[in-house]
Design a protein around this nucleic acid. Structure first.
Lengths: 147, 147
DNA sequence: CTTACTTCCGTAGTCAACTACGGAGTCAAG
DNA sequence: CTTGACTCCGTAGTTGACTACGGAAGTAAG
């Protein structure tokens, strides 16, 4: 799995991806990032694929997935047999769609607020809570832990 | 701000919303949930609005917001003056839209995988990493902390 | 070669978000 | 009017995700 150009030291890798060196080592221990083979008495080198993978991890985190879930997503990325993959993918797809629905509702409520603000002035409020439940009762629910 | 029926004890409130009593008390200390006035030598009571608010908090968490950000969202819900509100709302709107874009990409990649699995059998992989960056470089980026 | 910076690796500390504990006060079924 | 469950409140412990520390070994500019 060695890409053409594996030229980055761990420090350069960390700077490129915008994280701390210790975070990379932590992800390696968690099995989220690989630990490239190190030449006898030498240093490990990283490439562009590692950077992309790490950026993906950070984005997925921003999208509300925890490290175990990100591990699942990466197993799909890395490729597994259809039988397990499709079960897992359907599960992840369900939670992605739940998140999409919830965020779409927030988007509506927030853009409504912004519009209302531009129109009148004074006090305004934003029916965010109502928006998340309106005519979609339970669509975005508490299926939180391990979707 | 007392709703018509404030009949729930903290325990019933917690069960209804599917959280731990201690979590409610923790949110009260954080200023995310109110602490209803308690009658002289009595007990606090909670109503449907409290339940909805708490469910909103849990949903927003699932959507990748932290408690500070959820505090911001609730300030919009509760209503503030347009000047501050619209600035805050535009910011939140931006991060909601970033999340929507990232999730939409994941959705495409995952449903592609599921479809591929139904078609052929054997090994399949899922270009999740590529999907998050393809023709949208930096759209979902590392603007993580405090959006 | 020296010297200053890195890497390597294991262990320990921090921060956010809970979760548990314990003792005093409150409530409600019998 | 007792008794068992629950509330209140402050403090302490846990979990997930990092972040820091320190000493031995690697690296690279002068």
């Amino acid at each position: 799995m060695n890409a053409p150009t594996e030229n980055l030291t761990i420090g350069a890798f960390a700077r490129t991806a915008g994280v701390n060196v210790e975070t990379i080592r932590f992800y390696q221990r968690r099995g989220i990032l690989r630990q490239p083979a190190k030449p006898y008495g030498g240093i490990r080198r990283y490439g562009a694929a590692d950077v992309a993978r790490l950026r993906f991890v950070k984005s997925a985190q921003y999208l509300g997935f925890n490290l175990d879930e990100i591990g699942d997503l990466l197993r799909l990325e890395d490729g597994t047999h259809c039988r397990e993959a499709s079960v897992l993918a359907e599960l992840k797809l369900r939670s992605v769609r739940e998140k999409l629905a919830g965020l779409a509702r927030m988007e509506t409520a927030l853009s409504g607020l912004v519009k209302a603000c531009h129109a009148r002035k004074g006090n305004v409020s934003c029916p965010l809570i109502a928006s998340l439940f309106r005519d979609a009762r339970r669509e975005v629910s508490m299926s939180r832990r391990r979707a």
